[in-house]
Design a protein around this nucleic acid. Structure first.
Lengths: 337, 337
DNA sequence: TGGTATATTGAAAGCGCATTCAAGCAGAAA
DNA sequence: TTTCTGCTTGAATGCGCTTTCAATATACCA
């Protein structure tokens, strides 16, 4: 904020241009000169002004991370925070790549202004968007931007956006296959909203696993949660009221699984003896519930890292990357199944 | 990134200076002209270039948030994330104040470079530093910066830095008073490291409450955790081995409380019948443990908001603010006490 | 009506850096 | 020695915006 490139130039008895070359590691500077300049820079603790540099180069080294903020949504479905954890990993990945991270939690009404100020204002080089709910009105605004953008979490409405997601499908297949192998024969599922990528993919995996093992799909065993009409507990109660209740349930998320667990216990049934449960996410609570939950762990860290790397590749004009990448999940067997 | 102020000027048939005035709401522009310029801006969707603006004004509207990253520390003591949650609230507060947030999770070896690039490079106007551990080598580097800085979490080594913290002392007093009122007579405590502000303050509160009610302080009932030498379980075991074990324990954190809970149960004792427990933080796990934990909730949201507001005041040259502010905690009674 | 005070406006000079272009230089080739 | 080539360097320009400073237009007063 204080000392400028020009002063460095004077101190090192060279032109500003040469100092600039040294800073940016241009090859054509004599080693002696380079060393001399570097010494001066080191000595006075000079750091080039970010704004000036951005103005000249038209790039900022900042990447934006937008977590669409739906107050209700976040509190209800993400109490401990997938996106929260994700942003930590993204932040770390940025540091490791010498990029800066601008984090925004914006509500729909702030999205337009955000887009104008940040994106059009040239504040950031690229954008990572966390995809919460499908119909989020923030998305069209952000995804319409001209700067490279990566979405975390598949959104079927925007198939042409570069996207990183967990392999929800395979994770679900594995979970349901596990239940089959443990001898369960009447396997139900309570899905997330099927309007979303995660909900759809996990639901597809459930069906696939059943079909693959010669089961028939029984629509009565599939209940979709739909807040606020059909909550997790509602869904579980519905399953228990069937003439022949299921002997296992694959849940769309650990939070729903925990709710289901409570309902089952209230009904006087035991987990896993009467009904086996498998969740999804490996939420921190899953490991400490009673009984601990068998679940499918999302590769949050990998997703964050990969999202950053992909964005950097896009910034590098590398268009050879696939539009969609599903990162492998990890199956965690505990005592609920 | 595309259309400039100059072009707006042309389109509106005024000088660039006037457009600038309109953008920055300077008073001395005729209303007609102002409206005309605004119309053009709106129509073409112009947004001023952030870098150019920063270069000219020497301010960025970005505030930096640094979460010192000690890999081990975070995983062990902050699994669900005080800082993680805090940063969400800080991000939201920034949005609300039309500021941008640059989030950095830096490890000690990245701190020097960070300081140079970001702070000296004029990337940010002010800094919020999350204070993890006291001896964090990142702190002296950051806190030595010339830009306004706010620390979240008291650090006794840097008493002159503006700081926001939870009122750990009063929270602890309340917790221990509660135990006394429930008839407990031999109240122990397992403290966080007493090298840190939170550990110290909660420990002081414990003593204060006892003294206030005519108890004497029994050193045998105070165990300080010191990773890796004295873990939470170690500390609890030590208390149980006393000739007369305590009938209540005030824990430095919910995570330690959960560990203690397990140890107590393994010893065949019951909570709260044999030993009452009160934790601190209101960690998400506290509400769902068996039994649910009585605890002291940290005002994370308020801390984040207040930190941002304080920083903005400092940026505004308002030096009338107190150096230290302790935000009230909330006592949450559950079944462990 | 003339004159002064005030409200509006524009021209121009940076802000600190990157980069183009041309000049300077040393060494290689002739 | 001369000429040509390739490597180093510096001068100058511009990135897009803000901000004096001076000029003009408008208002007000007598």
């Amino acid at each position: 904020m204080d000392i400028t490139l020009e002063q460095i130039a004077k101190l090192a008895s060279v032109s500003p241009a040469t100092v600039s070359r040294v800073i940016n590691n241009h090859p054509n500077v004599r080693q002696v000169v380079r060393d001399r300049v570097r010494a001066v820079i080191e000595q006075v603790g000079y750091a080039p002004n970010a704004a000036a540099r951005s103005l000249a180069t038209k790039q900022t080294n900042i990447i934006g991370l937008v977590i669409p903020q739906e107050p209700e949504q976040n509190i209800k479905n993400d109490p401990i925070g997938f996106f929260t954890t994700l942003s930590q990993h993204i932040a770390r990945a940025c540091s490791d790549h010498n990029k800066y991270l601008m984090l925004s939690m914006i509500t729909p009404d702030q999205s337009t202004q955000f887009y104008r100020d940040i994106v059009r204002g040239g504040h950031i080089d690229g954008l990572i968007v966390g995809c919460g709910t499908m119909e989020d009105p923030v998305l069209p605004v952000l995804l319409g931007s001209k700067i490279p953008t990566v979405m975390v979490g598949r959104n079927p409405y925007y198939p042409d956006v570069y996207c990183i997601d967990a392999d929800n499908f395979s994770g679900a297949v594995q979970a349901v296959t596990h239940l089959i192998e443990r001898g369960r024969r009447r396997i139900a599922t309570i899905t997330l909203s099927l309007g979303g990528g995660a909900g759809l993919d996990r639901h597809s995996g459930y069906k696939r696993a059943l079909l693959q093992h010669g089961f028939t799909i029984d629509p009565a065993l599939i209940v979709e949660t739909r807040y606020p009409d059909v909550s997790g507990p509602d869904a579980m109660r519905r399953l228990l009221q069937l003439a022949t209740p299921p002997d296992a349930v694959f849940l769309g998320s650990d939070m729903i699984a925990l709710e289901a667990l409570a309902v089952i216990r209230d009904a006087g049934l035991r987990v896993p003896e009467d009904i086996a449960l498998v969740g999804f996410d490996d939420h921190p609570l899953a490991a400490v519930s009673t009984p601990p939950l068998t679940t499918v762990r999302q590769p949050v860290a990998a997703m964050g890292r990969r999202a950053v790397e992909l964005l950097l590749q896009l910034l590098d004009e590398d268009t050879s990357q696939p539009r969609f990448m599903a990162l492998p999940t990890e199956f965690v067997v505990r005592q609920s199944s």
